[in-house]
Design a protein around this nucleic acid. Structure first.
Lengths: 219, 219
DNA sequence: ACCTGAACACCGTTCAAGT
DNA sequence: ACCTGAACACCGTTCAAGT
């Protein structure tokens, strides 16, 4: 029994039953072992969960060829979309990526690639670092809030709409007026809307300072 | 013993010892009561924690006069800053606001006010709803990732910088080059950077559609 | 009617005892 | 040297028994 198989099994169980329901006994049973054996490979549950978090980041795959010839804006969009769609594949495990600056090997690799992307398109290092932080936080934060445990799934959007509509229109005129718009937009579109806002803002901030608007969109 | 006092005490304990360490026994002891009594007021720990989350949202205070005469961009900035600074006051409780669309009374009040703000400045209802979602998710997502449990506090930024610097510059050229920039920017400034990107993007998206650029900045 | 001591099934973690 | 059964202190939750 190697550490990798334990982490893989833990992620699979979390995907199936949720992170609250994952138990070291359950994990040990699935591996035909005992809980005490797990402690030979990890210092405790927290350390194991951190490795599961990095394991998820390792699933993000963007082939270098995919980004070739793209403008920085299109390239960042492709990378952010790949990141987001990976996170959506593990809604039950998302909370593992909150509440800490990920420093596992896969987190390092992803950070390196995105910062490199900005630098290679002429962003000064300070702007590249802050753009990375803003976009990284946005992607993870959005995924956690829309897909995390307890969040209404696509089929619960209807319930949320009914709830907004059931409010007193005198007390909540704006919310009831926007009820349909708040609940009808597909989550992926909602994600793209905010991402595009960030990138438009970044594009604009570049006009007054340094990053090249060379390599313009659409080829 | 009323429900409000239980929620207040729970939040105080979470602020002090963290959300993982909060125990119903600890909470009951602090209230000079027993755990079974708590179940007379809440269906279980999850329901109690949801109320603590809404209790935090109730701390966000923005006086209507503060927003008077401001451009929509400045008004949204004031509101987002007030929201963010409230969240920063309860770092140990932030995870309560992730992973669900908040629908408590204070969440409703805040949503109503921000959507009203957009509508009153001429945003079409669809754009107002998506702008609300994007900004709300950004504020909460950013706060959780920078201040949540396990996240390095300001004093740990130095440790993170040392860690980035200790990496092999051949394997991680961009990360080591950006190490100082990734760890030296004050968190509040980093928050403002991303918020400004979102608002700039929103401003730009308005130019090609409908929201009035009337009420221009700076008065 | 309202409260609660004591129990229940379960958790993460440890360690002496096995192989 | 590596594994693990059984125990430890603790958790959220329940309910019969108290007032």
């Amino acid at each position: 029994m190697d550490a990798g198989r334990i982490v893989d099994t833990a992620l699979k169980l979390i995907d199936e039953v949720g992170i609250q329901a994952l138990t070291l006994r359950m994990l040990a049973d699935t591996l035909n072992s005992g809980t005490a054996t797990l402690y030979r490979h990890f210092n405790g549950k927290d350390e194991l969960l951190a490795l599961v978090g990095d394991r998820i980041l390792g699933e993000v795959r963007v082939a270098p060829e995919e980004l070739e010839g793209l403008s920085w804006r299109d390239a960042v969009t492709v990378a952010a979309e790949a990141f987001y769609s990976t996170l959506c594949r593990h809604p039950n495990a998302l909370s593992l990526l909150a509440a800490q600056v990920p420093v596992g090997p896969n987190a390092l690799r992803g950070r390196e690639r995105l910062i490199t992307l900005f630098l290679s398109h002429g962003f000064p290092v300070g702007l590249a670092a802050r753009a990375f932080t803003a976009i990284g936080h946005y992607v993870i934060g959005f995924a956690i809030q829309q897909h995390g445990p307890g969040a209404p799934g696509p089929e619960d959007q209807g319930q949320l709409r009914d709830y907004y509509h059931s409010l007193d229109p005198t007390a909540y005129p704006a919310t009831t007026a926007a009820a349909d718009e708040l609940t009808s937009v597909p989550l992926h579109e909602e994600f793209r809307f905010g991402l595009d806002l960030l990138l438009s803002g970044l594009e604009q901030s570049g006009l007054s300072s340094s990053p090249e608007p060379e390599d313009a969109r659409g080829h």
